[in-house]
């Protein structure tokens, strides 16, 4: 039986700008997580958190529960207390801030490029900007929706995995180990630091994404530029033997500030200079967005 629904009118209230922004964000997140390939990729990118999970499991379940494993148990315990690949102990904020050191950084750069660099470029290529901007939203609302999407995805990769690890560790740690008492004071600072780190990367990603229609180019540009600047910073540091050369690398700059917020290990890069470079780059990103986020090409 066919029902002709007709075309009903709508007299109800219309929602405000925040709900409209969240509509963009939730739709985009759902779209990204609905792809099987992305889930595989995401699982790979979560490897630092998965490794942290394994080490917490070794520390609190294998070692604590199998203390009678003579010899082997001692070695495992030393390794777990020190952390994997020479990183900090699991009761230290550095363990949660950056597990794999350089390896984690590379994964974050790749992940951010894949999920964020093409987020607006894809819409430009499909002509979707015209569809968005002829709705009851301003370009800034559209940009905010996309920014929140990238921010959330980066937080998933950088922070949420470690928070789950921490919650797991709290739940399995023996009550007399003092793990919770030792670790909970730095968790709020860690969340703030990673939120800042991810927000900055999300802003830069979205801004750069406004100026191209090619998703591949956008990803290559993001990963390439950051990686090249990081390498240049390393070379300059070796040549001039001064930590200020790290200011050439935007990633190092934002990481330095996040490190200060988290209260993570010492750094020889100047915090004040880092804040100055960060502010300049963010201002440039906003200018770039304003210049390039246009809905239509000029036609007659």
């Amino acid at each position: 039986m066919i029902h002709d629904f007709g075309l009903r009118g709508y007299d109800g209230d219309r929602v405000g700008v925040i709900q409209r922004i969240l509509a963009i964000t939730t739709t985009e997140i759902r779209r990204i997580f609905s792809k099987k390939m992305f889930l595989v990729f995401f699982f790979l990118m979560m490897s630092p958190a998965i490794m942290a999970f394994v080490f917490v499991w070794i520390r609190f379940i294998v070692i604590e529960g199998s203390g009678q494993m003579i010899g082997f148990g001692d070695r495992m315990e030393r390794m777990a207390d020190r952390g994997p690949f020479g990183s900090a102990s699991i009761i230290n904020v550095d363990f949660y801030f950056d597990l794999l050191r350089g390896g984690g950084t590379a994964l974050t750069l790749i992940f951010s490029g894949v999920v964020g660099a093409g987020i607006i470029a894809r819409d430009r290529a499909a002509g979707a900007l015209e569809l968005y901007f002829t709705r009851g939203i301003r370009p800034i609302s559209y940009f905010t929706g996309k920014f929140l999407t990238v921010w959330f995805l980066l937080l998933c990769q950088v922070l949420f995995g470690f928070l789950i690890v921490w919650i797991f560790a709290v739940s399995v740690a023996p009550t007399d180990s003092g793990y919770f008492a030792d670790t909970w004071p730095f968790i709020p600072r860690l969340i703030a630091a990673q939120a800042f780190f991810c927000a900055t990367l999300a802003l830069w990603l979205c801004a750069l994404s406004t100026s191209t229609e090619s998703v591949r180019f956008a990803i290559l540009r993001w990963i390439g530029v950051l990686a090249v600047l990081r390498i240049i910073a390393g070379i300059l540091n070796k040549l001039f033997m001064t930590p200020s050369t790290h200011l050439v690398s935007p990633h190092q700059v934002v990481k330095r500030i996040a490190q200060a917020i988290a209260g993570a290990g010492p750094s020889d890069i100047s915090l004040e200079s880092s804040i100055l470079v960060w502010g300049t780059l963010c201002a440039l990103a906003l200018y770039w967005t304003r210049r390039h986020l246009r809905p239509v090409e000029i036609v007659g």
């Binding site: 709508y10 209230d13 509509a23 819409d123 009851g136």
Partner: peptide, 29 residues
């Protein structure tokens, strides 16, 4: 508005595109 050139929300189904369009125009979800 129905634009002249090809325009669609990339990666979305027809249904999700129309739902998003409605929500962007202020309709509750």
């Amino acid at each position: 508005y129905m634009p002249e050139k090809e325009a669609y929300m990339p990666g979305l189904s027809g249904l999700d595109s129309v739902i998003l369009a409605g929500r962007l125009s202020g309709l509750p979800k």
